[in-house]
């Protein structure tokens, strides 16, 4: 095994306690930066600065998503919020009032109202969170191994059904019976490359999201698409109005 492969195999094992520590440190740092930026977003008198602080907040959210292992949501966060919405914000700000320095009109007198709305939101969302996860428990330690056995493996150069490849494990079992095989068996059964064959080993949230969107939530998804189309056409009509 080459050096690179050695390193690469180490990368996969994101279970050590060191990684936990690193993740905690990263979370702490990101959270601190996010809190500071969120605070500055509402306190700075410079509109462009406020938008840029908002970028940091949103990037922090994306980083947290990635930290939690859901890179799809993280990437979407970057693509939609940073790549599109904030850029449009900045675009609008710079086109209309591209003024350097502080803007007095940003200093709003309705701070009391803003604080009230903020507190209200905090209470509502806090209640929702507590209500939902009140009895949830965090489990520590090794997650339960999930074994996925392909129906066909390659022994030598010949594709062979699994049942024939490991007769001693599967002997005498029916189609619906559950079996538990050891990691060593699994590794020997399914070589590394085999596991990377498209579709063979996708346990990630990616596939689950796709599945749920296009089966369970297909109607809302399409409804949203039509809504966006209507908004698009409306925008064109408004802009084209002679």
């Amino acid at each position: 095994m080459t050096l690179l492969a050695q390193v690469a195999s180490d990368f996969n094992e994101l279970t050590s306690s060191e990684v936990d520590i690193a993740q905690n440190i990263a979370f702490g740092m990101i959270a601190a930066v996010m809190l500071f930026s969120a605070f500055r977003t509402v306190t700075t008198a410079n509109v462009v600065h406020a938008a840029l602080y908002l970028v940091i907040v949103l990037a922090g959210v994306a980083a947290l998503f990635i930290l939690l292992g859901s890179d799809f949501v993280g990437a979407t966060q970057v693509l939609v919020y940073i790549g599109a919405i904030i850029v449009l914000f900045l675009f609008g700000i710079m086109l209309t009032k591209a003024r350097l320095g502080d803007d007095e009109s940003v200093e709003s007198e309705r701070r009391g109202m803003g604080a009230l709305v903020g507190i209200l939101l905090l209470v509502v969302m806090g209640y929702a969170l507590v209500d939902t996860f009140e009895n949830a428990e965090l489990t520590f330690g090794e997650p339960e191994p999930i074994a996925y056995v392909p129906t066909e493996v390659t022994v030598g150069d010949v594709p062979t059904p699994v049942l024939e490849a490991l007769p001693d494990v599967f002997a005498g079992l029916g189609d619906d019976d559950e079996v538990t095989i050891s990691q060593a068996d699994f590794d020997s059964l399914v070589p590394e490359v085999q596991r990377r064959v498209p579709g063979a080993e996708v346990f990630g949230n990616n596939k689950q999201i796709a599945d749920s969107i296009f089966s369970q939530y297909i109607v809302p998804f399409e409804a949203v698409s039509v809504l966006l189309l209507a908004a698009l056409i409306g925008a064109i009509v408004v802009a084209r109005k002679e």
Binding site: A75, V78, L79, V202, G204
Partner: peptide, 12 residues
């Protein structure tokens, strides 16, 4: 898993 999607996202 979302490699190319991630790439397109951060390119913006």
């Amino acid at each position: 898993d979302t490699g190319i999607y991630f790439a397109l996202a951060v390119s913006s």
